[in-house]
Design a protein around this nucleic acid. Structure first.
Length: 886
DNA sequence: ATACTCACG
DNA sequence: ACGTACGTGAGTATG
């Protein structure tokens, strides 16, 4: 068998590792304050590579210094680069140490780059019949790919790589690996700072290389090119092109003083590595080696506690001030989870028990229900629901660690108390995973000591973090958001979840059997057309049938094969009958699996209701989400799917479903926060906003009729503005040319100049402060806003403009929900709020209350906040969620 | 576990 | 020239 050689581009991997983890740079420091993210990332990459590639020989090549033969030849080579940050340079010696202790050789050569060392040794290896793997963060090295040399380029982090073989290069660029040199010579390289030929980019470069084979071939036949600007540039800049080719060429014969025989890989020096990991604080690697990372480190603190039973409950009478409380429910779904135990205490005295029946006994029940005694918790909604199931009405939550942490930073959030505490610099508590295990092995420990100790540390963490998180909320001007919106909302959501929505199982079952018949018919037709049976749900098998057997044109690819998504199939539908049938099959199978069997599974047998959970601390924008099941995506757009809503019925005879929704709330928010006079005028005049937009951007006369197609386009532009527009995206959506789409957008900005200004200002604000805000000071941090990578940065820019809009709309409905719940109580209504679907509230109520709701609900919703434009609310009601009528 | 597809606002 | 709209959750296939 051929020998295997591993060549690693040391500097480029270190750079990649450093910047991949840059957002968490301060988390990766060891006890001496040394930054370790790059070392850590390098080690991750190393493990990952050695897992699948078992080298007989291995080398990590480093750059020897700034000066190389290339800089001597071309002074600006790699010029203009930012200075390497100190946090990175300090890590380089340790990376070398890691390399050596991991059993790999390292090498550098004055005057040459790591690339040249790799190119030279890869050539020697090819000649000697080795199989070689090159690992790098630098795409330039793909020019080294050959039949026996694969180049793995790191993708996102450092462990995800894209493997370049000559075939892969051919597929991606349509040229051979060595022609990459010619391509780069013509197009230049901005990061290495050499220019290439003026106005020649990747597309043109590839075209020329394909046509002439190489830079030399091009200039031999330059006369064959038609007269053009491009030709002039090529002729004028021949010298530049030839020089760039030299710069772009990785040497295959650098004067390296080592050979393949010097590179044998013997595996890691385990003892020394362990010592090194300890020094670096790499606990996860030590754990992988089954070594306790804490052996010579501090343990968690010892906290004293008292175990409660029915005989010593009286001791709790000493708790009269503020308490921290934690009821442990091992399963995520707190509507159903068993109870494992609880802890309560005031920071001085802690009490624990597995006997959750005690919670319903005095004086414990009194403390939990008291509106005098403040409670500190982690995830108040779960605690309210859990305690409700135990017969306790949990009141007066003051501090919710999870909720406060989410408001401070939506990015680094976790549902685990241990993780959240760590985010805030408090390490004296373990994660549930560390104590209970994960996956199938997850279990509450039998050992009282272990279990109670964990509970007490959790309560202690809550108690400890209270002051500092409140302080941070104050500093961010987020205290009212927490106190007046999110915390009261928690109780409203808990009540909605506990109320649940009544779903008629028989209706679903009847629909299910009809769908099943229809599905069998379509399935038979599909097999007929295809000439064989196959799994229609398998995109792989379906791709094979459509694109290989039936030879339909490939419109779009995914990273693993052919795309068979709706937009693709719709384009193919005219060409083959089978495609339409597949679309139908998909539609029905989605309804069947997600909405018929899916919903049937989650109807509680006790009350015939579905009790979803709203996640209040998940989305990046401040919206809610809904799980187990998701009741925010019940079909409505297509008539077939809409039928599902027939199963959503009131829970009492003679009651009705009532629903109110905000009309165009996001665009109204846009009109408000941009202060754009034209947009505000259109809303104040009560215009059909998409029609009004069409009138403006297509310059129609006041008396001119708006054809539906114009309105449709204007609507798409409005959506685009809210989402962070691009001409390409808009063009795709409304099937016009990119040029036309561009013009629509330009017209829009001319007509609504303050919208344009807002977009600019918001992105600017984000660049300067690193976050954006909604009208209630809800924050979203955008670490990528200054990213070097174009697409990451663009994405951050789009979210910068979208988040204040989507997030403010979320703020508004949250305020409305809190007031709504109050009003229902104040008016002694039996009506219950059941669902929130982003801009819509769904209720059930006795028929006689419907007229009351018709006035009350819209008035509460449209006055939730005062904007510079009116908020418009529309209501409907009916016997089921399907039958809603105005 | 990850990718793909598709349901909603 | 880059790579496309923003925010979610769930079911199925497959490595």
């Amino acid at each position: 068998m051929a020998k295997h050689l591993l060549l690693i581009d040391g500097n480029s991997i270190v750079f990649r590792a450093f910047f991949a983890m840059h957002s968490q740079i301060d988390k990766f420091t060891n006890q001496d304050g040394l930054h370790t993210a790059a070392i850590y990332g390098f080690k991750l990459m190393l493990d990952h590579v050695l897992d699948s590639f078992h080298p007989d020989a291995a080398l990590v090549a480093f750059d020897a210094g700034k000066v190389t033969f290339r800089t001597k030849m071309y002074g600006d080579y790699k010029g203009g680069r930012n200075k390497t940050p100190e946090e990175l340079t300090e890590q380089l010696p340790y990376v070398r140490e890691l390399v050596q202790k991991s059993g790999l050789h390292s090498y550098e050569l004055p005057n040459y780059e790591a690339d040249d060392i790799i190119g030279t040794l890869a050539k020697q290896a090819d000649d000697a019949g080795y199989e070689t793997l090159i690992v790098t963060g630098d795409r330039d090295l793909t020019q080294l790919a050959s039949d026996h040399t694969t180049v793995a380029v790191t993708h996102k982090g450092v462990t995800e790589t894209e493997h370049y073989t000559p075939a892969h290069v051919e597929e991606k660029l349509g040229i051979t690996p060595t022609q990459i040199i010619d391509m780069k010579a013509l197009m230049g390289d901005s990061s290495d700072n050499y220019p290439g030929v003026t106005k020649v980019g990747e597309k043109t470069a590839i075209k020329l290389v394909k046509q002439f084979g190489s830079v030399e071939g091009l200039y031999d036949h330059i006369n064959e090119l038609k007269k053009s600007k491009m030709k002039e540039h090529l002729v004028d800049e021949e010298d530049i092109a030839r020089q760039c080719k030299t710069l772009a060429t990785i040497l295959r014969d650098a004067p390296v003083k080592i050979g393949l025989q010097d590179l044998s890989y013997q595996g890691p020096q385990t003892e020394e590595l362990i010592e090194f990991y300890r020094e670096m604080d790499f606990k996860s690697f030590l754990k992988k080696m089954n070594i306790n990372p804490d052996d010579d480190e501090e343990h968690l603190s010892t906290i004293k506690y008292v175990q409660l039973s029915k005989d010593n409950l009286d001791q709790l009478k000493q708790l009269t001030g503020e308490v921290s409380f934690y009821l442990e429910m091992p399963e995520a779904n707190y509507h159903l989870s068993p109870f494992a135990g609880f802890v309560i205490g005031d920071g001085q005295h802690w009490f624990v028990s597995r006997e959750t029946e005690l919670l319903n006994q005095q004086p414990l029940k009194h403390i939990l229900e008291s509106t005098e005694i403040k409670k500190n918790v982690f995830n108040a909604k779960a605690q309210i629901v859990g305690l409700h199931r135990l017969g306790v009405d949990f009141r007066n939550v003051d501090f919710d660690l999870l909720l406060a942490s989410y408001l401070l930073n939506t990015n680094d959030n976790s549902n685990d108390l241990g993780n959240v505490a760590r985010e805030h610099g408090f390490n004296d508590v373990q994660t549930d995973e560390a104590v209970y295990g994960k996956g199938a092995k997850r279990t509450i420990p039998d050992d009282d000591q272990v279990f109670f100790d964990h509970l007490v540390h959790k309560a202690h963490a809550i108690d400890h973090l209270r002051v500092s998180l409140f302080k941070q909320l104050d500093e961010n001007e987020q205290r009212p958001l927490y106190t007046d919106i999110e915390l009261p909302l928690t109780r409203v959501l808990a009540e909605m979840e506990m109320t649940g929505v009544h779903v008629d199982a028989q209706t679903l079952k009847n629909m299910g059997s009809k769908l099943k018949e229809r599905m069998a018919e379509i399935e038979a037709q599909i097999y007929e057309e295809a000439g064989e049976k196959f799994n229609i749900n398998s995109t792989k098998q379906l791709g094979h049938i459509l694109f290989e057997k039936l030879k339909l044109p490939v419109i779009k690819k995914t990273k693993t094969g052919y795309s068979t998504a709706v937009d693709v199939l719709e384009k193919l539908a005219p060409q083959a009958e089978i495609v339409e049938q597949i679309l139908q099959y998909r539609q029905i199978s989605k309804l069947q699996s997600t909405y018929i069997t899916g919903l049937l599974k989650v109807i509680h047998s006790s009350d015939q209701k579905i009790h979803t959970r709203y996640l209040q601390t998940l989305t990046q924008t401040g919206r809610l989400s809904s799980v187990d099941p998701n009741l925010q995506n019940i079909p409505v757009r297509l008539p077939e799917g809409r039928q599902i809503r027939r199963a959503f019925v009131p829970s009492h005879e003679g009651w009705q479903i009532f629903s109110s929704d905000y009309s165009q709330v996001e665009l109204r928010v846009l009109a408000h926060i941009t202060g754009d006079k034209n947009l505000q005028t259109d809303f104040k005049n009560g215009e059909d906003i998409h029609a009004a937009t069409a009138r403006r951007i297509f310059h129609l006369q006041p008396d001119q009729k708006i054809d539906p197609n114009m309105r449709r386009r204007a609507k798409a532009v409005n959506f685009g503005i809210v989402y962070g527009i691009s001409d390409y995206g808009l063009a795709q959506r409304i099937h016009v040319s990119r040029k036309d789409a561009h013009e629509f957008i330009q017209n829009y900005f001319k007509e609504f100049p303050n919208v344009k200004k807002y977009i600019h200002d918001t992105v600017d604000f984000a660049r300067e402060h690193g976050y954006v805000e909604t009208i209630t000071h809800r924050r979203r941090y955008l670490p990528d806003i200054n990213a070097k990578n174009f697409s990451r940065r663009s994405f951050a820019e789009r979210t910068a403009m979208n988040t204040p809009i989507q997030g403010s709309a979320a703020d508004i409905i949250k305020i409305a929900m809190i007031r709504m719940q109050d009003e229902l109580q104040k008016h002694h209504l039996q009506a219950k709020m059941l669902l929130q679907i982003h801009d819509e509230l769904v209720f059930e109520a006795p028929a006689e209350e419907i007229p009351v709701l018709q006035k009350l609900v819209p008035s509460v919703m449209d006055s939730a906040v005062k904007l510079d434009v009116p908020l418009k609310v529309e209501s409907k009601f009916g016997d089921t969620w399907y039958d809603l009528k105005k």
